[in-house]
Structure formats: C-alpha cells, structure tokens
C-alpha cells in the first residue's frame, strides 16, 4: 500500500545518512491500481509539499508519463486527475526501496514496507 503520495515524503532514516537520501529507488515492483475518491481540495493543499522532480522521475520509472517535467503554475482539471491517479491510485504491492546514498534496502511485502533498522544503523 505504498502510494507515491507517501513515497514522495519518505527519506532514508539510517544513521549518518543525511544527504542525498531521497527519493528511495523502487526495484522489482509489482503495482496494483485501486480507485480512490477524487479530492481536488486535498491535492491543491498537498501540491506545495511535493518534491516535483522526485515524483516525476518515480512515476516515469513506474511507467506513467502523464505528468509534465516542470510543475505547472496553472492547474486544470485534467492535470489534477492525472496527479490524483499517480499519487493516490498506484499502489506498490511487492518489491523493495533502496536508499541512493547508503544503499539500505527496505523490502516491501504485501504492500507494507519494512522500515526497521538493525542495531548499528540506529541514529
């Protein structure tokens, strides 16, 4: 149940891994599309929080190219629908996420990522 919504907020939290630790890279993923209620108000409120480059890169990696490279200043309905689909309807069920900096692998099983750290990785 990792959606890109939360993936876009998630950085590596291992010890001394403070720079270049975002976004986590998906690997060997299985996707599932589940419809969700369209909520334009939420999306508009959430837009400022999005790291746009990371979102577009991840979406393209998962095979969705409906988002423009630059975050548009004017938002229309179609753009919001695309954004809604990418943020809230694509679920990553299986696979793993790798930190680009320290290389820590967070496995995803049943849609739940395992974020537990070993003792020596706790900051």
């Amino acid at each position: 149940m990792v959606r890109l919504l939360t993936h876009n907020l998630l950085a590596c939290h291992a010890k001394d891994c403070n720079t270049n630790n975002f976004p986590l890279q998906f690997k060997d993923v299985q996707l599932e599309i589940r419809e969700a209620d369209f909520n334009p108000e939420f999306l508009k409120g959430f837009m400022p929080k999005i790291d746009w480059k990371a979102l577009v890169d991840t979406a393209r990696q998962l095979g969705d190219t409906s988002l423009p490279l630059e975050q548009p200043e004017m938002v229309d309905d179609e753009f919001l629908k695309n954004l809604h689909h990418i943020l809230l309807e694509i679920h990553v069920e299986e696979g793993s996420m790798t930190c680009p900096n320290c290389g820590h692998v967070y496995p995803i099983s049943n849609g739940i990522p395992n974020m537990l750290l070993a003792e020596h990785e706790i900051g």
Binding site: L10, A11, L116
Partner: peptide, 11 residues
C-alpha cells in the same frame, strides 16, 4: 512496519 523509537525518515 516501523519502530518509532528508531525515528522516522519523513521529509
């Protein structure tokens, strides 16, 4: 699945 005593990685 996360141990909150290990901290979060959210931006």
């Amino acid at each position: 699945l996360q141990d909150i005593g290990q901290g979060f990685g959210f931006r």
